[in-house]
Design a protein around this nucleic acid. Structure first.
Lengths: 339, 339
DNA sequence: CGGCAATGATAAACCGGTCTAGTGAACGGA
DNA sequence: TCCGTTCACTAGACCGGTTTATCATTGCCG
């Protein structure tokens, strides 16, 4: 027999299709004895539900969609995504929810995918990442009426749930740490300026600079690539009154910056302290190892997945879930100023 | 109207459901005039196919499955997967094929997922990675009669297509390069011994050692983690008659090994040459930068995806597709021996 | 002009589940 | 004893497509 169906179960157990459906889904309508018999038969003939048939009846797709809008080719170098993905997956797979993944070029394409996935009922919910200032996706998911979770909020995202970390507090802790070490000329090599998390960090630096009266505190924007991270570093170190400390928005850029410093004969941490806003083996394997704002990105993914499952369970309840604030881990790349 | 269906199109265009289906799928059975009218109506009311309904009729799921059987937590650090994934995605998305992704703990769980995805008709094909010696998955996919592509073959995998690179030739080129530089004591820090690619590399080293009469050529197995890579390095460098060159199976382990060497006062490349079997920014950002066997992993992913689409188009045609052999890129971590 | 094939279209079955309305039997209370 | 309720279960509609069998019309050929 090719691929047993509930009709086969029904025949063998001597009941109707409906009864089988009730039994298999744990709903009332059958006696315990019958239920047990049906389950036994199902087990025996190795029956599996046909997801399409289920979905057709309006049931869940048991899949969540994630679209990443960055050039596919550059994605591989960013450890953050892989770790986030791992965390999401670990949690989702515990509920047998698969991840529908797609990498596209830009937000327009991303929105197109959302529309088709939703109207084709491929996914039950969407995870939005890299939220931008005035992000058009928010309006789209609200219009599509599909459960969504913003990873890396919160921002202006109406009634959509979000999971976020306090970038502001993290940045402040890094700046204060540097200030205590005697640094007054602090620079920030950031990511894309249109991202909300980039803006939060840059603003936090500005505010801290005002409060602690640090002159020359500045943010240089990049596209997160190691090349632009290196270029920004070169620019900072070449100028007069160069910074004594640089905070990088990713470990990849921090490592690239470290390379530039060595190349230019700027000793780390003696002449320049370096802090990475993201931690990974990468930051730990360099010499000197990098002081970093560390958080458990895997766990962040797990929490994002949990938030999604909460929204799936009750779409009316939206919630902003704040996760652990990245903590500063002091390593070898920071030291007091020499003066 | 909530979610237009082909019945709506049929009504508005004044034809039957069947005619609409023919028109939308570009099959014969309707005149050009009618077809055009139907397509126009479909466009107008913004109709999208309901993937579940399609699948129920036995059609394609337009998704390909990929299960990675490694501890989710450690996955994020391996740049290889992210790049492979990017390449796969880029190619698949050009055909609107989504990737169904799941990360599990072991091969048993992986096989379970295969069974359920196939019987639930969630995917049209499966990508198998990290092929092991006598891998049980081969028998499973053959039994399930689902199109599959082995990424990183070829091995004993019957009539299943594969996409692979010539690890043996790559390893030989690395060993020969080192031999020319005067190295005779060459070690290899490899990955998990049960993987076929690990075995091919280890065997290539042994063969080269015999041919070039290199004593003490040996492979040390690890689990691919930076910790075990470091431990293996420490063991190698602590012993008497330590190697003058080490080849690492991944850039992550190579970087970890580099750190251990620096820590132990072994100068790279002066006292020790290092080659990484995998290239990425990681290898380029260290100091000294790492000589590496480089290949375009993104492209590898693209080719794997193409192989999958070929099998989907005609499941009877299986093929072993050999991709570019990793080429040695000399950087700063290798030099002639001092003697 | 008759027979036959090709064309364009329709109606209905079908895929494998879910779910609702309905049925018969057992049970309980007055 | 009789009615109402609950329980266990059945029959069949339904979801939104695809596909097959069927049919009418037209055109072509001998």
């Amino acid at each position: 027999m090719q691929r047993p169906t509930i009709a086969d179960i029904a025949r063998q157990a001597g009941v109707s299709k409906g009864a089988v459906s009730f039994a298999l889904n744990g709903r009332p309508g059958v006696s315990e004895a019958t239920r047990a018999r049906i389950l036994r038969v199902a087990e025996e003939i190795n029956w599996r539900p046909h997801s399409a048939a289920r979905a057709l009846g309006g049931a869940r797709a048991d899949a969540v969609g994630l679209v990443i809008a960055r050039p596919a080719r550059t994605l591989g170098v960013e450890p953050f995504f892989a770790r986030l993905l791992s965390g999401l997956q670990a949690e989702f797979s515990s509920q047998s929810i698969a991840l529908h993944l797609m990498i596209v070029e830009d937000t327009r394409a991303e929105i197109e995918i959302y529309r088709s996935w939703v109207s084709e009922r491929r996914v039950d919910g969407l995870m939005l990442i890299d939220l931008k200032v005035r992000d058009p996706r928010i309006a789209v998911v609200e219009q599509l009426k599909i459960p969504a979770v913003v990873v890396g909020g919160p921002g202006r995202h109406g009634r959509v749930s979000s999971v976020w970390a306090d970038d502001r507090a993290a940045m402040l802790s890094a700046v204060e740490y540097l200030a205590v070490l005697g640094h007054t000329r602090i620079a920030h090599v950031s990511g894309l300026p249109e991202f909300q998390h980039t803006q939060r960090r840059s603003r936090a630096l500005r505010d801290a600079a005002t409060r602690l009266t640090l002159p020359r505190a500045r943010s240089l924007h990049t596209d997160f690539s190691d090349a632009q991270g290196a270029a920004a570093t070169r620019k900072l170190l070449a100028g007069a009154g160069r910074p004594t400390a640089i905070i990088y928005d990713s470990d990849l850029m921090a490592v690239a910056g470290l390379g530039v410093a060595l190349e230019m004969g700027v000793a780390v941490p003696h002449d320049l302290s370096i802090i990475s806003f993201d931690d990974s083996v990468l930051a730990q394997l360099t010499h000197p190892s990098l002081t970093a704002l560390s958080r458990d990105t895997y766990r962040f993914g797990v929490q994002a997945a949990q938030a999604m499952m909460a929204v799936l369970a009750d779409p009316t309840k939206t919630k902003n879930h704040k996760t652990e604030t990245p903590r500063l881990i002091a390593r070898e790349s920071t030291s007091p100023t020499r003066s």
